[in-house]
Design a protein around this nucleic acid. Structure first.
Lengths: 156, 156
DNA sequence: TGTGAAAAAGATTCGGC
DNA sequence: GCCGAATCTTTTTCACA
């Protein structure tokens, strides 16, 4: 199977393995092996295959930003003057550490971004001094996440 | 330090360790140790402390949904009839596997959700048959992500 | 907090089925 | 595709600075 192919087939055992690792990337393979009744070597083989299929794009430690004093999460819809501004705007947004995601979107805005700030004050500074300062940005609409109830990956 | 405390201080070594693990949760501790010139035991100690501080909320395998045929990512703003509908609506959304995130937000909508579908057809079915069918949902606004240029965590 | 060394556990390879 | 055994690496613990 070529890397990045979009016709990967996974069976029930693959799903079980992945479900374990999606919850905790450091789950020992041997522990998974014991829990699903297969040898560690077999799981190792399957993981190698899943990896080369491009389905596994890596693993991440998840840190809780709240503990570092970052508790304001928001989405910002951005209107750009000209479509031409897009690539430059994205380049500028990449340099803003508070920006976690950036999407070109259909609909009202040119761009939708997700930002993480310490508090509302920080968010206001971010909007006024950094986002609005980007060339091409004409207007923004901000949606603060008061509470996030769901946060998960694709279900297998 | 209590679990979940919001006054955790981390030093440069902690940051180096976390930066490694945020990129790849399975990086061996000893490899990190070699790269930053400290013993593996010391890193182990620091990780235990960071964990009990609540800063580390786990680790995840990241899978590439595109390889499974899921290539349409969208945000949907949802208007609810009455504020009272919120908890029930969230409960209903939890049962919809396509919903990856769900936020109570300030602004126009009651709720903003992120969904992952195979294609636009699937997204349309999702909207018509599942989202609109939820009690309390009066109207929705959909923003399809044509391209995601930035996807990252808080920068340390 | 850190270290080095020892012990325990896990990852990886490989021949064989 | 899977297994088991052998080997190598990593994790974890602990006494000590």
């Amino acid at each position: 199977m070529k890397k990045g192919s979009n016709s990967v087939k996974i069976d029930g055992i693959d799903k079980k393995i992945l479900r374990h690792l999606m919850k905790d990337a450091r789950t020992p393979i041997l522990e998974i092996a014991r829990s699903i009744g297969i040898s560690g070597a077999a799981i190792h083989q399957r993981l190698r295959k899943l990896e080369s299929s491009g389905l596994l794009s890596g693993s991440k430690f998840v840190i809780n930003p709240r503990v570092l004093g970052y508790s304001t999460l928001a989405y910002i819809g951005i209107y750009l003057d000209r479509a031409m501004s897009n690539p430059q705007a994205v380049k500028a947004l990449e340099k803003v550490p508070e920006v976690l995601e950036c999407h070109y979107t259909t609909g009202n805005w040119s761009i939708l971004i997700k930002v993480l700030c310490r508090d509302n004050e920080h968010l206001m500074q971010l909007l006024n001094k950094k986002i609005q300062a980007i060339e091409g940005v004409s207007r923004t609409e901000t949606f603060i996440s008061l509470d996030q109830q769901i946060d998960r990956q694709i279900s297998l």
